[in-house]
């Protein structure tokens, strides 16, 4: 938290630093009162593993972007459909990350998340996208990010 403050600030005087520290403390306090600081929140360990996944994801996104742009110029070629995808994540955060990654790649949007059995309902723009989902790579990478898979 405090590091985030430091990143934002750009001005380092004694007063501001101490205020920043107090702020970070205060926010933590209020957040805990709100009950948002449980393990559903973002574990810090993620940041270590993030860059690798991010790079891969960026590439995926660019690819699918191109695919969707093509469809935009030819809307008739769309084959919208819904499919179920199962995630292998153990934590809620992991599942959410998976769902978000699915959404982040254009062409697929996670519509519903069944928490009980780790299924994600996905809306895909074409068959190709739907096919792509069954590819377990993304699932694996998210799980990896989550840390449940080595």
């Amino acid at each position: 938290m405090f590091s985030l403050w430091l990143l934002l600030s750009g001005h380092y005087t004694g007063l501001l630093l101490s205020l920043g520290f107090v702020s970070a403390l205060g926010v933590s306090m209020i957040a805990s009162r709100m009950g948002v600081l449980d393990d559903e929140g973002l574990p810090m360990a993620v940041f270590v593993r993030l860059p690798k996944v991010a790079l891969w994801l960026t590439w995926e996104i660019l690819k699918s972007n191109w695919a969707v742009v093509k469809i935009i110029f030819n809307p008739a070629s769309a084959q919208p459909q819904l499919t179920w995808v199962q995630g292998s994540q153990k934590t809620a955060t992991g599942l959410v990350t998976y769902a978000n990654f699915i959404t982040l790649t254009p062409g697929t949007v996670s519509v519903d998340v069944e928490e009980a059995d780790n299924y994600i309902l996905v809306h895909a723009l074409t068959d190709d996208f739907a096919q792509g989902l069954s590819d377990p790579e993304m699932d694996a990478r998210v799980s990896q990010l989550e840390g449940t898979k080595p």
């Binding site: 948002v36 449980d38 559903e40 973002l42 959410v96 978000n100």
Partner: peptide, 8 residues
């Protein structure tokens, strides 16, 4: 769940 986690 998605919203919840992100909100947190």
């Amino acid at each position: 769940i998605v919203i919840r986690v992100v909100a947190k």
